[in-house]
Simulated scan of single mutants.
Amino acid sequence: MMKINKKWLLISLIAATLGLTGCQSSNTMIVTADNQTVTVPKLPHKVVVMNYGALDTLDALGKGSIVVGAPQSVIPTYLNQYKKTNIKDTGNMKEPDLEAIKQVKPDLIIIDGRQASRAPELTKIAPVINLSVDAKNYIQSTKDHINVLASITETETKATNLIQSLEKKVNDAQSIALASHKKAIVAIHNDGKMILINTSSSAALIHDVLKVKRAVPVDVKSSNNNDKPKPVFIDNHYISTVKPDVIYIVDRSKAIGKEGMSENYFDSKVLKKAKTQVIYLTPDLWYLSGGGAESLDRQIDEVVNSLK
């Protein structure tokens, strides 16, 4: 009897690390995501995915065929294979189309922070799991999400291989970044304005995970806790003053189908004098996606290539 109890204790501990906290029945399981426990079906046949990072993870796990709905209007280019007639357009990233989602009768709905406020309504249609990326624990968050989706779809072996590959890629990227003298900033373009995003998930990945050196320190709040840091606008004067070796740009406007950043935004003479290299990150990958097995792999490549 003692041996059996120990065995079940070991199984419980392993399951907890995967986000799996127990079994409801032979057809359901309980998963933990975004600090919530949700009962979900095992091996769901019809899944609506509002989170592109989760979509590319399902694709990498070989389970893309269970996706019956996703936002179609701004789907990232690297996921174009899911922009087809047999996959229902389930609204945009912030406004899920509830009627369209009801029509496909999903077994499971996967969201992120953009749709979190609509979770109560979505839960009335099907179980909902929120796989938002935790910027402060970017890699662990991504690995946890891969494991959760693998548990639900019973693809744990593939998940293990994916995670091992990503861990090696991160370690290799860190070695390159630490050996490089280059210091960088991360900025976002929106409607003709360029703003420093030094504490964003993109900056967390580039600086905190991949170890690209910062050209400026992390923003800090003012002594008054009610005050938010003022936005720092990036322009020719900023480049001339700070002289970053690299500026990584996430073009939000272009990612959502609006007019992208002007090619003449920065004066070429200013860039040359400051010795600043401008890296245009793939807009839809960095703004709309991230935190998935494939998106993280692609993001690492873009950062590493800029340091060589």
Rank of each mutant, 00 (worst) to 15 (best):
K183G: 07
V170G: 03
V128S: 13
E156R: 15
N147W: 02
K124T: 09
Y138G: 02
P127D: 11
S117I: 09
D134F: 01
M93W: 12
E156F: 09
T123N: 05
I197A: 12
A100R: 05
L196E: 04
I185A: 11
E99D: 10
K158D: 11
V186F: 12
H189G: 05
N92S: 12
P120M: 09
L178V: 15
Q174T: 03
A179Q: 14
R118I: 10
L98R: 07
H145W: 01
N130P: 06
L122I: 05
H145A: 13
I185V: 15
E99K: 03
H181W: 14
H181M: 15
A150F: 04
S175N: 15
T160R: 12
K124A: 14
N147E: 04
T155V: 08
R114F: 01
L162S: 11
K143S: 03
A100H: 05
L162P: 03
T123H: 08
E156T: 13
H145G: 06
R118K: 13
L196C: 03
S132T: 07
K158L: 08
S200Q: 11
A126I: 00
T157W: 09
S132K: 02
T142V: 02
A119K: 07
D134S: 04
E121A: 10
K182T: 09
I195S: 13
I185H: 11
